[in-house]
């Protein structure tokens, strides 16, 4: 089965001021599947993730060279509408960050911004997003309650529902379960298994077992370079490079 390339990253360098945080990254990320980015702290995996929807543009003095194609479009081309890009490439962060609004409004927010006015259609879209984020059954009777009253795990799934509401093509997840307890983490992992059937997911995680469980492809970063990428099962049982082996077996870090 041939897989469609969603992202094609070519010779990507990224700088925070003078500091080169990413060097010569070349990588393809396939459509509909989960790609995990692993590596020790400071290796550049989160920086790379944020390059995929240009979240790093918000950091003063940062700059990038190289190309990242989303489909056939270079997302660093001068004429790119970054707001539109971030609609196509949604993001979920480490700490759940719901708006201080109702559960319904959290999910409806992006839809309203995108011009949804019909109440019935809006309600339907909110329900679908909450169902897709495996949260609907837990909140359907209290959609008008504050999102801040939800547990941490529920808040994170609400953030996923919020990201899904605008029908993105890609979902970036930056350690989405690291602030959650084991049961909430399990729910997020189960959700990733569901979502990857329909979306392209790129996940940064410090938890190697989590990367092994949820992803199809794993990429190992070290000191700003992409060291090895491959099928998750192969990378965790028979990595090609000693540096990868030493990291995943805990011989350095």
């Amino acid at each position: 089965m041939t897989q469609t390339v969603k992202f094609a990253v070519k010779d990507l360098d990224f700088y925070y001021g003078d500091f080169k945080a990413l060097e010569g990254i070349c990588m393809e990320i396939h459509e509909r599947g989960a790609t995990a980015l692993i590596g020790p702290s400071g290796c550049g995996k989160s920086t790379f993730l944020r390059c995929l929807n240009r979240m790093n543009d918000l950091i003063p003095s940062s700059h990038v060279s190289g190309e990242i194609f989303l489909g056939d479009q270079n997302i660093y081309a001068p004429d790119i509408d970054v707001v539109h890009l971030r609609r196509r490439v949604g993001m979920v962060f480490q700490k759940p960050n719901p708006f201080p609004k109702t559960i319904f409004e959290n999910v409806a927010y992006g839809l309203r911004v995108n011009g949804y006015r019909n109440k019935a259609a809006l309600r339907e879209a909110v329900e679908k997003s909450l169902v897709d984020a495996a949260l609907w059954d837990e909140v359907k009777d209290r959609l008008n309650a504050s999102a801040l009253g939800l547990s941490g795990g529920q808040q994170q799934r609400l953030c996923i529902a919020r990201a899904l509401a605008v029908r993105p093509e890609v979902l970036l997840m930056d350690e989405p379960a690291s602030a959650l307890d084991p049961i909430a983490t399990q729910k997020i992992e189960d959700l990733i298994h569901e979502l990857k059937q329909h979306y392209t997911i790129v996940i940064v995680t410090h938890n190697m077992q989590q990367a092994a469980r949820v992803s199809d492809i794993t990429a190992f970063f070290y000191m700003g370079r992409l060291i090895e990428t491959g099928e998750t099962e192969t990378l965790f049982t028979r990595p090609q490079l000693k540096q990868t082996e030493d990291y995943i077996t805990g011989r350095f870090g």
Binding site: F236, R238, T249
Partner: peptide, 8 residues
């Protein structure tokens, strides 16, 4: 939860 060579 060993990995790679350790798991093997």
């Amino acid at each position: 939860q060993p990995m790679a060579r350790d798991l093997r």
